[in-house]
Design a protein around this nucleic acid. Sequence first.
DNA 1: ATTATCTATAGATCTATAGATAATGC
DNA 2: ATTATCTATAGATCTATAGATAATGC
Lengths: 193, 193
Amino acid sequence: MGHSRADKAQTHERLVEAAATRFREKGLDGISLADLMKELGLTHGGFYKHFASRDALVAEAVEYAYTEGERTVAGLVDDQGQFDLARYVDFYLSDSHRDAPGSGCAISALSADISRRDEDTRSRYRQQLDGIFTRIGASFPGDKAEQRKQAIALMTRMYGAILIARGAGNSELSNEILQTVREQLYAALPNQA
Amino acid sequence: MGHSRADKAQTHERLVEAAATRFREKGLDGISLADLMKELGLTHGGFYKHFASRDALVAEAVEYAYTEGERTVAGLVDDQGQFDLARYVDFYLSDSHRDAPGSGCAISALSADISRRDEDTRSRYRQQLDGIFTRIGASFPGDKAEQRKQAIALMTRMYGAILIARGAGNSELSNEILQTVREQLYAALPNQA
DNA sequence: ATTATCTATAGATCTATAGATAATGC
DNA sequence: ATTATCTATAGATCTATAGATAATGC
């Protein structure tokens, strides 16, 4: 079997990571605990030594996905170490991001599911969304209020585009949507310093 | 019991209608056949005299929701009988549309679920989305290609806004998103004739 | 001795089917 | 006679728990 305390911590982490991927791919109800444990080569009985309930795993996995998203954004910097908004748009509206929701933005992948969850989950979601508006807004000129409006404008366009591009699968229409919105957003980006 | 052929046709229709509502509210897997039948005052055993499978109901219910959406759009006309795009934006980004997905736009309510379904469902979705771009595009000036780009621009913004407004529930942030995007879209509407 | 994981299972829920019941409609 | 709906249930699946097993770690 093999089960040191270090193993347990690692199993916990691997569970959260696998869940964060599968939940974004298949939805928060889209994978069973048995299948998830099987994916790690474990049996389902051991699950509750790691989490009090399935909901507890959901909470940790969503948290993990949020943090992963923040790291992705933080890594998109230009030569001067400034956040590169154009690269973010490129990534966000790419075919690969559309086709791999499991490693992509949690907001677009999980908003519909989260809107059907409890208030705690939605409250945490609001906090995350608010932080995104603040971080993205910083790339725009103007005062805080104007920056925030620009961030809301940009993000709603990307969320809407990837939502329907995913609904349309990998298709001509889906590619058209992504490309069209990419072009429109390039035109709306602030001039680079 | 009461069960004429007319009753059967009515039961079928009521099932599709109730499913179209609950699926948009709770997701395509969010309500069981037993609960759906109970909602109509029926027991679950009779379901399969109406549909070959649960998936068959999903297909009909999604179809129903699409058609309902088209009727809603078709009803938004101004004094001259022209489609009133401003009223559409108003309706789409309203608090009431956010809070009542069951009677609202099927695209924003079901895109995430549909992206996880079979190719037939996604193919039908593409057809619906393409039709929406054509109909909405007709309100914009320019050639077909330009109209289509404008329609994609408008619709992605509305889809993205309602997606995250719903994730954020009925909250200050949610209201801010809806209001901000409404204002931005008013400014982008074509001048009325 | 402790504990991470495994085996086994309880209890709930879900889709689907079989056969009974009570109306309709020829 | 036909059939829309009901009762009952099979079979699958899911979350959660109990107790056994085989390692770790004092």
